[in-house]
Structure formats: structure tokens, C-alpha cells
């Protein structure tokens, strides 16, 4: 019964980066010192071409922070934001390492697919 308890508790803890998480990390790297909720969501919207929920951005960023891939700190509160502080995000060394690792694996996988196969699937669609 105790093992069953522990199994349910540990369910859903994955170590690899998801698609959305990878995009977020790249946006945080790109924005540098200005990486907080609004610009990060805007950056993703610009590249994905659809509305991004700021709530889901925060949820994913907090998940990444729990994994030690980014850190966050509060900035000053401003009147434009109703006196509420900005929460800035920075990538950690481990985060950078994982981004590079994911890129390396994805590039290798892309190289294994010949061009004619990609063209064939695109034509089918």
C-alpha cells in the first residue's frame, strides 16, 4: 500500500524537456535581462502565430524552476502594473546544458530523415 502511495506521488515527474518548455527556455535566453511574463508570452505568440496564455507560461516556467533549469527574482513594483512587481526569469547552467543537449539530439534525428521523405509527407497533407 505504501509503495502504491509513492508510485502515485511520483507519477508525472518527467526529466526530458517538452516542446513548450524548450520554446520557453529559448525565449528566456533570447530576452536576457528583460525575460518576464509579458515579453516571454509575446515572443512565443510572435513565433507560434497564436494567442499564448500567460497563466500557462507561468505554470511551465515554475515547472522549469522546480527542475533547476531557470531561476526567478522579483523586480520593483510599478504603477503601470497596479503596483505589482515583475518576476524576472534567468536560465541556469543546467538549463543551458539541457537546451544544447535537446538541440543536439533533435539535429541528429532530423539528419536521419532524407529530404524526399519529408517532401512526400508534406505533399500527402
Amino acid at each position: 500500500m505504501c509503495y502504491f502511495f509513492a508510485i502515485i506521488e511520483l507519477m508525472g515527474t518527467r526529466s526530458y524537456l517538452g516542446e513548450f518548455e524548450l520554446m520557453l527556455l529559448l525565449a528566456v535566453i533570447h530576452l536576457g535581462e528583460e525575460a518576464y511574463g509579458v515579453p516571454v508570452a509575446r515572443e512565443l505568440e510572435k513565433h507560434r502565430g497564436r494567442i499564448v496564455s500567460v497563466g500557462s507560461v507561468y505554470a511551465a516556467l515554475e515547472r522549469l524552476e522546480a527542475k533547476g533549469l531557470i531561476t526567478s527574482s522579483l523586480g520593483d513594483s510599478t504603477p503601470e502594473r497596479g503596483g505589482k512587481a515583475k518576476r524576472y526569469f534567468r536560465i541556469t547552467k543546467e538549463g543551458l546544458r539541457q537546451v544544447h543537449e535537446t538541440r543536439r539530439v533533435l539535429t541528429r534525428l532530423w539528419r536521419t530523415i532524407p529530404d524526399f521523405k519529408l517532401e512526400f509527407h508534406l505533399e500527402e497533407r
Binding site: 518576464y36 509579458v38 500567460v54 507561468y58 503601470e80 502594473r81 505589482k84 512587481a85 515583475k86
Partner: peptide, 14 residues
Amino acid sequence: TDEALSGDLLEAFR
């Protein structure tokens, strides 16, 4: 207690 999200939404709205 996390006010950053509320602030972000307000900033984007304005």
C-alpha cells in the same frame, strides 16, 4: 500570493 501574473495581465491590457 503570486502577484506577478496579475501585474503582467494588467500591463498587457494597458
